[in-house]
Write a protein that binds this DNA or RNA. Sequence first.
DNA 1: GCATTAACTAAACGTTTGTTTAACTACTCT
DNA 2: AGAGTAGTTAAACAAACGTTTAGTTAATGC
Lengths: 206, 206
Amino acid sequence: MADKKSKEIKKNSKEVILRSAKVLFAMQGFELTTVREIAGKAGINVAMVYYYFNTKEELHQNIIDNAFKSFSQSLKEGVGQGKGSEDKIYDVIKVYITFLHHHKDIHRIILRETISQSKHIDMIVKKYISRNFDLVHSIIKEGVQKGTFREHDSTLSTFSLIGMILYYFTYEPIFIRLISPEKRKKPITEFLPDHIFNLFIEGVKG
Amino acid sequence: MADKKSKEIKKNSKEVILRSAKVLFAMQGFELTTVREIAGKAGINVAMVYYYFNTKEELHQNIIDNAFKSFSQSLKEGVGQGKGSEDKIYDVIKVYITFLHHHKDIHRIILRETISQSKHIDMIVKKYISRNFDLVHSIIKEGVQKGTFREHDSTLSTFSLIGMILYYFTYEPIFIRLISPEKRKKPITEFLPDHIFNLFIEGVKG
DNA sequence: GCATTAACTAAACGTTTGTTTAACTACTCT
DNA sequence: AGAGTAGTTAAACAAACGTTTAGTTAATGC
């Protein structure tokens, strides 16, 4: 019985490190987060971090990779295939907002990476972001072809749509200080999707 | 004659420090930029930084303050008073984009500050951001009152408008990797204002 | 039950950081 | 001309950082 229990209780140090690091990187950024801090939060020795990851940067990169894999899957699963263009757009908005709301830490890590113009940003764009962008772009292009949306620069509007969504999470610290207290109590997932959907659809409708 | 020349040539160290620090903070962020680096770029001794500013953080805060003062002035000057609501919105978009295009470093510094949830962010919002937000908000509210814009949540749309603008600068490193090369050559100030204006106005039109 | 590997630890390493000190010019005012 | 102040410098400070080392404990396979 000791065998089984120890297997259950046994803490998977690598995963504990990843979880702790994710929170700390999101809160404080890469540079301001020390390896000792990560180890402390994970309840393990500093050297363990270097046992599983070669460098602090490799750990960071690992977290970003996991995040994008997770999101790309959500996006593919969340957008209905047989639907019309407007419904697909609504799905996209819903998936983005729902995911970001539950993974704020991930968004902040990637945002920091973007601003920092890190060496990895090229790889990240090619491997992940451009795929997600193309998926949304193709929905809008399809809508234009079918006449659901008017003729316009679909590349720019794709960027604007994603921009309208991400912006709320990017500037959330400022947003919660600007909107009224009663609305502040409602989770962002309740009022934001419809607002962005209406604004965007009216702007591109045929 | 030596007098006059020395007066002309005499480098104003404080301003050189501010200029050098602004560029470096924007490029690398607060933590990754060292005081020695700033001094090196400014061509002065490290101790000079501490002669003019008590700490590295005070220097940083000084740069942010100057930036917001400069932008708030541009916004007040750039928005025509006697115009209709749509024209005023266009002015707002134009001022934001023009300013951000010429002061990308400032935007990145403030963006970092926002993400970092720094202790100063409360002060910054109260002192600067909320004022600018209210200015844009009042234009939209006026438009709704006059019937130029439809009835809707004007707080949210104000945020969305500013969001659509800022997003292009926040995610510019990704944007330039996604859009077509021929469009990439044009400065953002040429195609972006009209695009955002059309998208937004169609979305809120009465 | 013993050897081999994996998981883990305390302590130390060299480097870099923000900041301070104390001394030195150069200019201004009297 | 000489005191006083503003501007500037090289050198040093302690603290904190990412990373490594050498050694210990726990689990596994034969």
